[in-house]
Simulated assay, not measured.
Amino acid sequence: MDKRFYLNISRGAAASLLWLASQAAFAASAVEEAQTLLSQGQFDQALKKVDAQLKTAPQDAEARFLRGLILVKLNRGPEAIKVFADLTRDYPQLPEPYNNLAVLYAQQGDYEKARDALEAALATHPSYATAHENLGDIYAALAGAAYNRALTLDQSNQMVRSKLALISQLDSAGGKGAAPAPNTPVAAAPTPAPAPAAVPPPSTVPPPAAAGLDASTAQSATSVVNAWAAAWSAKELTAYFATYSPRFVPEGNLSRTTWEAQRRERILRATRISVSAADPKVERVSSDRVAVTFTQNYESDSFSDQVSKTLELEQAGASWLIVREYTR
């Protein structure tokens, strides 16, 4: 994808940083000189100037912010990430470091971290327009990755192809028509990589249709369950979470954020995972919701079990998404 993400680089964009540190006249002058050098393309000299300032005032927030921008220009991404991450830790009420951190994560293709950083920015400043625009592009990138994954699992799914084409059209329109703000570099996110070929495809055997349920709906719902199990087995977290509806409510009174963090940690902790959904049975719960009950066979390098699992799916356009999950 040729998504564009907007990075705040002007000192004006970080004006809210100024009140955090009492700046002596010479300190303000040093930062201004470094800013001038940056605008002139003299990145090494700008870095030396700001590093000298930080030796005398290590907590100078504006100097630290500017240092991160210089490191971006020098293509020293990991160092820039550390600078902005440290700023979000020390000054969590400021949105600009979160936004720039998100841009750098997006450059690396880590759209989930980018999304989380932008949501943190908007939690502090809901009217932050740049973060809203970037977040929209992140969601489009995540959608593209999920559709690519779905297409890998089912090459015959024309609906997925259409959705992927729509994402590409939106991307092309944005790349041609979106003009960056003055003095604002645009960081392009890489095209989401296709899923590994080793991931097992969903079962091609249609499940028996339950009473009041047509075979096509039963097959579609079961395909989602198979894709969910395959993504879990491959530890493809983007594809895994994409099978859940925004309306999904975790069991045990967990928040969605806490649940996702727990799932991410548990899935990545295992060296090897194998999940399958055996003997699926589909029944209609309401006009737009079905329940798929199956035997979940789970095996990892350290644990294995077999339980009866039910996933309730809600219709979302032409597809189905998980809204509830529980074991019996």
Rank of each mutant, 00 (worst) to 15 (best):
R149W: 05
R149Y: 13
A150K: 02
A150S: 10
L151F: 04
L151S: 12
L151I: 14
Q155I: 09
S156L: 07
S156A: 15
S156M: 08
Q158T: 12
M159I: 03
R161S: 04
R161C: 00
L164N: 04
L164E: 03
L164F: 08
A165M: 10
I167F: 04
I167H: 01
I167S: 00
S168V: 06
Q169E: 13
Q169R: 13
L170Y: 11
D171C: 08
S172Q: 14
K176R: 14
K176V: 10
G177Q: 12
A178F: 02
A178T: 09
A179K: 12
A179R: 09
P180S: 01
A181R: 06
A181N: 04
N183D: 15
T184C: 10
P185D: 02
P185G: 03
A187E: 06
A189G: 14
A189K: 00
P190R: 05
P192M: 03
P192S: 06
A193W: 02
A193I: 03
P194S: 06
P194H: 07
P194F: 02
V199N: 01
V199K: 02
P200D: 09
S203V: 08
T204Y: 02
V205T: 15
V205C: 06
V205P: 00
P207G: 08
P208V: 11
P208K: 14
P208D: 12
P208M: 11
A209G: 12
A209K: 09
A209V: 11
A210K: 04
A210Q: 08
A211T: 14
G212N: 10
D214Y: 08
A215S: 15
A215N: 06
S216Q: 14
S216M: 03
T217D: 06
A218V: 02
Q219L: 13
Q219Y: 14
Q219A: 15
Q219I: 01
A221H: 02
A221K: 05
T222G: 03
V225M: 11
N226W: 12
N226D: 15
A227F: 07
A229F: 04
